[in-house]
Simulated assay, not measured.
Amino acid sequence: MRRAVCPGSYDPATNGHLDIIHRASKLFDEVVVAVGINKSKKGLFTVEERLDMLRETTADLPNVRVDSWHGLLVDYCRENDIAAVTKGLRSVSDFDYELQMAQMNRELSGVETLLMANNPAYGFVSSSLVKEVAAFGGDIEHLVPPVVFTRLKARLAERG
């Protein structure tokens, strides 16, 4: 079975993330969408909330499962018999960073990385930018899945 992981913080997931997940699901027998746990970072959403939103937004993809991990991604891959990492590229700066990560991951464990060019419609979309624009009342509904939009609006309203 060919398995790949789509790792990220997904705080929150965007339509750009989902585009990569959907495309990866056509290339691999199983795709694991893995939320990284970084206790030193304070996210807008808890890891459990992110996992729930991702499960809802990928429910139509039978070969996709959602999980979380902490520590080195290559250790998670080894423990789960995952041979490849899939990542989306929006820009040259993404490429520079992801290439270094891909080379390090391959050196550490032999895990390969598939760097996928993003859909140009989402080339400017990032979780950070979505949160910032939403916090100032900007329209981000077309940039995130419906469940994320609803929960993001509610979370920002809670915080005033």
Results as ranks from 00 to 15, higher is better:
C6R: 05
C6T: 05
S9Q: 09
S9G: 14
Y10C: 06
T14C: 06
N15P: 06
L18E: 00
I20W: 00
I20S: 00
H22V: 05
L27G: 10
A34L: 01
V35Q: 03
N38G: 06
T46L: 08
T46V: 10
E48N: 10
E49D: 12
D52R: 12
D52T: 11
M53L: 11
E56F: 04
T58H: 08
T58F: 04
D60E: 13
P62I: 03
N63K: 04
V64A: 02
R65C: 01
V66R: 02
D67M: 04
S68V: 06
S68Y: 15
G71Q: 08
V74S: 09
I82T: 12
T86E: 11
T86C: 15
K87N: 03
G88V: 04
R90T: 00
D94E: 08
L108Q: 06
T113H: 13
L114T: 12
M116H: 11
P120V: 13
F124A: 11
S128C: 10
L129Y: 08
A134H: 06
D139W: 07
I140K: 01
E141K: 15
V147N: 13
V148N: 00
V148E: 05
F149M: 06
L152S: 02
K153P: 02
A154D: 15
L156F: 07
A157W: 08
R159A: 14
